[in-house]
Computed example of a mutant assay.
Amino acid sequence: MRVFNGADELKAAVGEQLGTSDWVTVEQKQIDTFAEATGDHQWIHVDAERAKDGPFGGTIAHGYLTLSLLPVFSAQVYKVENVKMGINYGLNKVRFTSPVPVNSRLRGSFELLEVSEVKDALQVVNKVTVEIEGSERPACVAEWVTRVYV
């Protein structure tokens, strides 16, 4: 875990690889729960029997489920101390470059692209690459924008 002691240390790290999270397993129960929460019940996600004969040979995680794991990964990679709070601000770019089969293990690697000052906060842009264990292609590559209030 990389720890930044305030804004100046975070700004000084722009351009650096911040680290990589631990592996997280995406199980069918999590996929089903995500489907319930979002209303996305497409068979490639929730119908194991039908998905066996589908293009992926089994169910796959929703792309947005993969994306929703970014805070889990981030919490393991770095934190900024001496700040009031942090919030999601948005995404600049997102690509789902490979499906995530059920029971895959994922992890997130972070590269700090930008830190800029905005009203009462720092806007932080990280390039996050979500890897699938054993796969040459990542599941997702995203530019994630957060705000850290100082």
Rank of each mutant, 00 (worst) to 15 (best):
N92G: 15
A121H: 03
L70E: 14
G57W: 14
E16D: 12
V77H: 14
K11Y: 02
A142Q: 05
V148W: 01
V141C: 08
V102D: 12
R147M: 15
V118P: 02
I31N: 06
E143Q: 09
V145E: 11
L10R: 01
R147F: 12
G86K: 10
V128H: 10
N5L: 00
L10P: 01
E143I: 03
S116Y: 03
F96G: 06
A12V: 03
N92V: 15
Q76V: 04
E136K: 11
F34E: 07
E27G: 11
K29Y: 10
W23I: 12
L18G: 00
N103F: 14
Y64T: 05
I132H: 02
G58V: 10
G86N: 11
E114Q: 14
V124N: 08
L10E: 04
L106E: 00
H45K: 10
G134V: 10
A12W: 04
E36K: 05
V148I: 15
P138A: 14
D47I: 11
R2S: 01
H62Y: 10
E143C: 07
A121E: 02
G86E: 06
A139D: 05
R147S: 13
Y64I: 13
E143D: 12
Y64F: 15
R95Y: 05
V124K: 03
G86C: 13
L10F: 01
T20A: 05
A51S: 05
G58N: 13
E136I: 08
P55M: 13
T38W: 05
H45F: 12
V118N: 01
Q17P: 09
N126E: 04
V141K: 09
I44N: 12
T25V: 08
F56N: 13
L10Y: 04
I44C: 10
L70V: 13
T20N: 01
F34A: 02
G108L: 10
P99Y: 14
V115H: 04
A51L: 03
G6T: 07
P99I: 14
N5E: 01
T146E: 10
P138C: 13
K93E: 14
K29N: 04
I44V: 13
N82G: 05
